[in-house]
Amino acid sequence: MNKKQLLKYIKNDLNSVEKRKTIEWVRKSPENQKVYNVLKAEYIASTFKDVPNVNSDFFFQRFKNSIKKRKLDKFSYIAVSIAIITILIFNFKEVISLNNIIPQESTQISQAAPNGHFSFITNRGDKKEVYLPDGSKIVLNADSELTYPKEFNDSIREVTLIGEAFFDIKRDENKPFIVNTNSIKIRVLGTSFNVKSYAKDTKVETTLVTGKVELIKDEETPIVLAPSQKAVFHKKENKLEIEEVKSLDVVAWKDGTLIFNKTPLREVAIDLERKYNIEININSLKLLNYEYTGTFDNLSIYEVLKLLTISSPIKYTIEGKEIFLEP
């Protein structure tokens, strides 16, 4: 595998066949994985070569905060950049350890369900596109299950979701589209929206991207969402809240990007576990509630952990197949 091909993969410039071949080569041996890790680190580091002109929200703003907002001059910025490059490229001890917890490729399972329905399942570390009988497109996130009929023959189009999915629904005024979760129903005619409803999570989130949706709970009056609004249903409190969000940030996971905005670290860890098929333990009540802001843009778990330590008061250790986060 040549460097040019690997760089194209890192930049997401390959077709699906080329991506598959590249992934197979990287996973073939620890040596190949190390070559990939170093090249990816070099590429990321190269994006900071014009450090004074970089939007510093993620790296340097947080670095400035960590030294009590002391203003940095140009040479200090360069020093920070060099430190980041050094950490990303030369810390091979962590690379070797993390090679032992690199998630294996998971599979998507489509199987028969009761009453002539199909159930589509994704494992942790996976996501998949699903096309429904009416032509609607659904992107199913990791560790999720979507159940739907072979054909939409009734007066409604009804599916059931456990987990997270992005829906792009074909408009049909004669057949409303219903998404059943374990707490609420979402009713639409034709629109795009995101639903996050994992069984173990404490809340259900519905984010509207385009169009209009209605949230239905028991016999209560439906609540209508407008674009860029997110409805958060807190299961324990049986309470529904509406908030304004950047909808494209919420659905960035479809393209491999995780964006967090003052998100409790306990929730960040859960999303990372699902995306990378790993186990994360946080042995600190203070860290569990620590609010993290940052973006992981198609990074490996090695790079994610490094950025966490650079941008937050967090350190990590690896024991076997588990990652431990500590203050």
Results as ranks from 00 to 15, higher is better:
66 S>W: 09
51 V>S: 11
238 N>E: 14
222 P>C: 06
229 Q>V: 02
192 S>D: 08
57 D>V: 12
288 L>I: 01
281 N>P: 00
21 K>M: 10
16 S>R: 12
10 I>N: 03
263 T>S: 08
300 S>E: 14
58 F>L: 13
247 S>E: 11
148 Y>K: 01
212 K>Q: 14
235 K>T: 14
190 G>N: 09
220 E>Y: 07
25 W>V: 04
215 L>M: 06
77 Y>F: 15
199 A>R: 13
42 E>T: 09
300 S>Y: 08
101 I>N: 03
304 V>P: 05
311 S>F: 08
171 R>N: 12
146 L>Y: 06
6 L>K: 03
22 T>H: 04
289 N>G: 08
79 A>E: 12
315 K>R: 13
220 E>I: 08
26 V>F: 08
44 I>F: 08
135 G>P: 03
71 K>S: 12
106 S>P: 12
249 D>L: 04
264 P>T: 12
317 T>N: 15
174 N>V: 00
315 K>M: 06
180 N>M: 01
112 A>P: 01
60 F>M: 10
280 I>E: 05
239 K>A: 12
21 K>V: 09
234 H>N: 13
96 I>G: 01
303 E>D: 14
282 I>M: 09
91 N>W: 10
298 N>C: 10
231 A>N: 04
18 E>R: 04
327 P>I: 03
214 E>T: 02
269 A>G: 03
144 S>C: 04
2 N>K: 11
277 N>Q: 03
185 K>V: 01
127 K>D: 12
291 E>L: 15
88 L>E: 03
119 S>P: 00
222 P>D: 04
161 L>P: 04
155 S>T: 14
111 Q>R: 15
291 E>D: 10
84 I>D: 07
237 E>A: 11
314 I>R: 06
228 S>C: 01
96 I>V: 15
88 L>N: 06
31 E>G: 07
243 E>N: 06
155 S>C: 04
7 L>R: 07
166 F>G: 02
62 R>N: 12
263 T>D: 07
237 E>K: 11
230 K>N: 09
90 F>H: 11
236 K>S: 11
39 L>A: 11
80 V>D: 02
266 R>N: 13
147 T>D: 03
123 N>C: 00
181 T>I: 09
323 I>Q: 05
2 N>H: 09
57 D>T: 11
53 N>P: 00
19 K>R: 11
261 N>G: 00
18 E>F: 04
8 K>V: 00
305 L>K: 05
224 V>C: 02
160 T>K: 15
79 A>Q: 12
180 N>I: 01
51 V>D: 07
40 K>L: 15
180 N>Q: 10
124 R>T: 13
110 S>A: 10
126 D>H: 05
51 V>K: 06
201 D>W: 02
218 D>S: 10
229 Q>C: 01
209 V>K: 02
274 R>T: 07
281 N>C: 07
